[in-house]
């Protein structure tokens, strides 16, 4: 399988001495849907900035489909479509003008550019706004405009820096569907996001970055499988819970967090049936049940904490 992106020992030290990247290595295969996760200031946007040549690297190498950005920058750029975190289009230009000009910067003739602009504006439900100044759009529309703009030259790799930040749930889900379709068409997608659910829903492979270091780089299934304990919240029938202190579940760590709300930790060797059996024996009915937190989020927090502990120990 061809490598869409190869990063080797990439370092970035900003003026003033801040070390944003401390020598990261990363490989993304062609056709992958890849998540780059990390807290604020971890180095996600710096990495994307270097790949797209908006940030000058200090050292290391970056290749996009085999084209090294030091020696074949223009060729490497033709493969990449970028959806940045901040809105960065001209607020006074119309949607159509923004898209057609952007295609022109990649050498797409105006006739083809108008055809593609129509296609993507329709797909992203922006066609009716095509002649409006971009500043008139809502936040969600602006995000979709940036996706359309990134696709105008039909890139082989699409990099999205927190594309659904500030987007409502319904629109976020429709954007997920659109990105899935693009990926199915063969476009490699790299995503940074704060919504860990988003990474879990969309991505096959994942790298977690913290303080300029890749702390984990694996496939999503293996990552989730490494999660040993999940916490469930059980809403109990309050009529059945006469004496709070009497609820003890053998073999489980549990705690009452309200008059009739029970939190239970379950490891991989245990089953939900064992909890229900014990609660039934106690004469307690369960009205509803839910996950306490997103699984990936829990894992992510643990990893970041471990990474910070390791740095402090050094």
């Amino acid at each position: 399988m061809r490598k869409a992106l190869e990063i080797s020992n990439l370092k970035k030290i900003y003026k003033g001495g801040f070390e944003a990247l401390k020598g990261i290595d990363l490989t993304v295969d062609e056709g992958d849907f890849f998540a780059l996760l990390g807290p604020n200031g971890a180095g996600k946007s710096t990495s994307i900035g270097i790949i797209t040549s908006l940030v000058n690297k200090t050292s290391g190498s970056v290749s996009v489909f085999g084209k090294n950005i030091d020696t074949e920058l223009e060729a490497a750029k033709t493969f990449i479509g970028l959806v940045p975190q901040e809105f960065n289009f001209n607020q006074f230009e119309s949607l159509m003008t923004i898209l057609v000009n952007q295609a022109g910067y990649y050498g797409v003739d105006r006739k083809t550019a108008y055809q593609r602009a129509e296609k993507y504006l329709k797909q992203l439900d922006l066609w009716d706004k095509r002649d409006n100044a971009s500043r008139m759009l809502s936040g969600g529309m602006k995000r979709r405009l940036m996706i359309a703009r990134a696709l105008m030259h039909e890139p082989k790799i699409l990099i999205l820096d927190e594309p659904t930040a500030g987007v409502d749930i319904e629109l976020r889900r429709s954007m997920w569907e659109f990105l899935k379709e693009l990926n199915q068409q063969g476009i490699t997608i790299i995503l940074t996001t704060h919504y860990l659910e988003e990474a879990e829903m969309l991505c096959r492979n994942i790298a977690i970055i913290d303080k300029g270091i890749i702390v984990k780089n694996t496939d999503m299934k293996s990552l989730l499988a490494s999660l040993n304990v999940e916490t469930f919240i059980l809403d109990l029938d309050s009529n059945d819970v006469a004496d709070h202190s009497s609820i003890t579940l053998t073999g489980f760590t549990s705690r009452l967090v309200g008059e009739s709300t029970l939190e239970v930790d379950i490891d991989k060797s245990q089953t939900m049936n064992q909890i229900f059996t014990q609660l039934t024996d106690l004469g307690i009915n369960v009205k509803s049940m839910r996950n306490k937190s997103n699984r990936l989020e829990e894992l992510f927090v643990n990893m970041i904490n471990q990474s910070q502990d390791a740095v402090e120990e050094k």
Binding site: T52, L54, A75, K77, L82, P84, E86, N88, Y105
Partner: peptide, 12 residues
């Protein structure tokens, strides 16, 4: 407005 980035990321 940062829209200069439209050109900087393109092979111009």
């Amino acid at each position: 407005q940062h829209n200069i980035e439209e050109m900087l990321v393109a092979p111009v």
